[in-house]
Design a protein around this nucleic acid. Structure first.
Ligand SMILES: [Mn+2]
Ligand SMILES: [Mn+2]
Ligand SMILES: [Mn+2]
Ligand SMILES: [Mn+2]
Lengths: 143, 143
DNA sequence: GCCAAATTGTAGCCTTGGCTCTATCTTCTG
DNA sequence: CAGAAGATAGAGCCAAGGCTACAATTTGGC
């Protein structure tokens, strides 16, 4: 049975798209946690592990591990038994993520997606919205 | 330092959104592989591990492991050194995923997203598009 | 038909991100 | 101001999904 292969360029392009999606996915945890820590610091002056875990829907050791990764990547700082705080880089990420989240939700709402579905779906979709797509979303909302 | 907690209902709702996103993410691998296996069977009459790995942009042991999960979940069948084929459930998933992928791309294009960005971003976003959001997308495209 | 090349399988390693269980530290309350 | 309650830390388990290295099987060219 012959199997004429796809053109290499097409196959490579498709592989690149999947690779890109995997890379974007690896940012999800960092993005969601930085935004939430920023939320908590704004609301309470600090972000406690217990509150982070509660809001993320995970156990506290899971939240601790996530914060360890944030610290390792230079996005947050903390001292034992004290709250978690964002670095400048962390604050920049939080601001960017918050703005993008809002735009994604607004686009979904503008397209007629019910509010509850828009919030739920945006929480996952946002991490795959590139700068080019975000720019198009903003232009569409300003139309 | 006082820290008035968020209302429990809001916190629970937010936790649910994150949990939902994590669950959706866990479907990504199954969805992308079933669609690709279906592509390959249509094009070549069979889906070989090497071709799957090449198109997914992973090594062949990674593709083998993914296929093992598909088999475990009743979405595919295969015999050693023979190709991989979808079950009825696998075919149903592939059809659903392919249709959803197209709609997501079409919506992005309709919003003015450049074609290359639309294809790349859709590959990740699609897995977080709920039935309600998909229905709204279809209605929007038929506008 | 044989043999080399291609393909597939398998073992084992790593990181991420969940979890439970236990220990330690801090905070609050009587 | 002690003791209980609450919060944090840490050890260790697991599954998913990447990888490399090596073994076995199949395929194709001569
Ligand atoms: Mn999110
Ligand atoms: Mn978000
Ligand atoms: Mn995809
Ligand atoms: Mn797709």
């Amino acid at each position: 049975m012959p199997h004429p292969p796809l053109p290499d360029s097409d196959a490579a392009a498709q592989a690149d798209r999947f690779s890109h999606a995997r890379t974007a996915q690896s940012m999800t945890l960092l993005e969601d946690y930085t935004e939430m820590i920023d939320d908590l610091v704004r609301a309470h002056g600090e972000a406690r592990i217990t509150d982070i875990a509660h809001l993320m829907g995970v156990t506290h050791p899971t939240a601790t591990k996530a914060v360890a990764r944030l610290k390792r990547e230079g996005l947050a700082v903390s001292r034992p038994y004290r709250g978690v705080f964002l670095t400048e880089a962390g604050n920049a990420m939080a601001a960017r993520v918050r703005a993008r989240h809002r735009i994604v939700v607004d686009v979904l709402l503008a397209l007629g997606v019910p509010a509850d579905a828009a919030e739920i779906d945006a929480e996952g979709m946002e991490h795959h919205v590139s700068a080019a797509t975000l720019a198009a979303f903003e232009a569409y909302l300003r139309r």
